[in-house]
């Protein structure tokens, strides 16, 4: 294995020009998922790629990262799964079947965020956000655990 060298210019270029536009495209894919190709899974995966590319430009075996630590990522992944499950159970609580968002009263969200979204579309949007959060956190967790050599210490 050859000697690794750190490149400050590469990291600066990736962090300043590449990663923000990848994340912006991921948000576009996520929000326009119901009108055009895309959705929660793709948006979350592209967003995770934006974070991973800035971590990769630092070089492998960096130890723990300060931006999104593993504990934060684990909490985010559980939050995404919890959002999905909560939205599914909310349909049962309001008298419908499981994952039936049409009966959940979400119309008051239109006052906060103006738009012509119906209840069902707002429910689908919340579900997509949960999926994106879960996929995003899980992919970065996979990268973190795979590229970090544990030298006999406990993995948090």
């Amino acid at each position: 294995m050859t000697e690794r060298h750190e490149s400050v210019l590469l990291h600066f270029f990736v962090r300043t020009f590449l990663a923000p536009f990848i994340m912006l495209f991921a948000l576009y894919v996520l929000v326009h998922g119901e009108a055009s190709p895309g959705g929660g899974f793709q948006g979350g995966a592209i967003f995770a790629a934006g974070v991973i590319i800035s971590r990769l430009s630092l070089g492998l075996n960096q130890g723990s990262y300060s931006f999104l630590s593993r504990k934060t990522l684990l909490i985010l992944a559980c939050l995404g799964l919890g959002t999905f499950t909560f939205m599914g159970i909310a349909g049962v609580l309001f008298g419908g079947s499981f994952l039936n968002y049409g009966v959940v009263p979400l119309s008051w969200l239109d006052y906060i965020w103006p738009g012509d979204l119906g209840q069902r579309q707002m429910g689908i949007f919340i579900i997509e956000g949960g999926i994106a959060l879960g996929v995003f956190a899980t992919i970065i967790l996979l990268f973190d655990f795979l590229t970090f050599e544990t030298k006999g210490e406990d993995v948090p």
Binding site: P37, G38, F41, I46, A49, I52, F143
Partner: peptide, 16 residues
């Protein structure tokens, strides 16, 4: 839709 997933996961994340 499938193509977008394949590009994001198959060509991007899996390689990394």
């Amino acid at each position: 839709d499938v193509s977008l997933t394949e590009v994001a996961l198959g060509a991007g994340v899996t390689g990394v």
